[in-house]
């Protein structure tokens, strides 16, 4: 049953993304200044929102782990971070493609870009730290602490466009600008893509959590077998 729900959610997310892609490519006009390339925004922004949400949830799960000492929160945290790093990659790569067309360069050391890269490195080191610790409870404890620290860089990345004068474009969505900067039809597709990606994230996290639980059970059985 659980499998069917997961597959169902995955299919819904896929179809939704396809439908959004149709609207993005054929329904919406080119942007006045940037032409066709602006369409990458419909994936760039939602994938950053998705990874920020995943990191936020992972941070919350890490706090819960330290509080309740239940390994299921750790399982959730690592799954969310893993899926989150994938979307961070998507965000970085889509941003770089856009920058190549609009700025003429792949990368610039602008505060927003730099912090985004730092966030990626910090969460990558979270995943590395997990590999370096053998004992499951120590691993959970230490990575939970790191996950809480790491969330600081997510917040700085998010606020970087307000704190520094960046080359990266400023906020466009109406909840940050107060409206008037973007056509409501375009904005609605951004939210719809975000929702679809979140659905996909939920499926991926659920699958990853099951793997993590299984690998822990196998590890436990191996230890048990070793003991006898």
């Amino acid at each position: 049953m659980r499998e069917k729900i997961l597959y169902g959610m995955g299919i819904v997310a896929g179809l939704w993304l396809l439908r959004n892609l149709y609207v993005i490519l054929l329904g919406l006009p080119d942007e006045a200044l940037q032409g066709a390339i602006y369409r990458i925004l419909f994936f760039h922004l939602p994938s950053w929102f998705t990874c920020f949400t995943a990191y936020f949830l992972a941070g919350g799960a890490s706090i819960l782990y330290l509080w309740k000492k239940d390994l299921k929160y750790d399982t959730f945290a690592v799954s969310a971070v893993e899926v989150g790093t994938v979307f961070t990659m998507v965000g970085l790569v889509t941003g770089m493609i856009w920058a190549r067309i609009i700025w003429g360069i792949w990368w610039t050391w602008d505060p927003r870009l730099t912090w985004a890269l730092i966030t990626y490195i910090v969460y990558a080191s979270y995943l590395m730290l997990r590999r370096a610790v053998d004992d499951p409870t120590t691993r959970a404890r230490h990575s939970a602490v790191l996950c809480i620290f790491a969330f600081a860089s997510v917040m700085i990345t998010y606020k970087a466009i307000d704190w520094w004068r960046t080359q990266h474009p400023g906020a466009v969505l109406s909840f940050r600008t107060g409206g008037g900067t973007m056509d409501p039809r375009m904005e609605s597709i951004i939210y719809q893509n975000w929702a679809a990606l979140m659905l996909l994230t939920a499926v991926l996290v659920a699958i990853r959590m099951r793997q993590e639980t299984m690998s822990r059970e196998i590890e436990g059985m191996r230890r048990f077998a070793h003991a006898i």
Binding site: I118, V122, M128, L129, A132, V133
Partner: peptide, 21 residues
Amino acid sequence: LTVNLRLRELMLPMLIYPMMI
């Protein structure tokens, strides 16, 4: 955090430099 790790000398710089930025 890293004191008991196998790769302590490697993991500490990996973790602290990004956080110190």
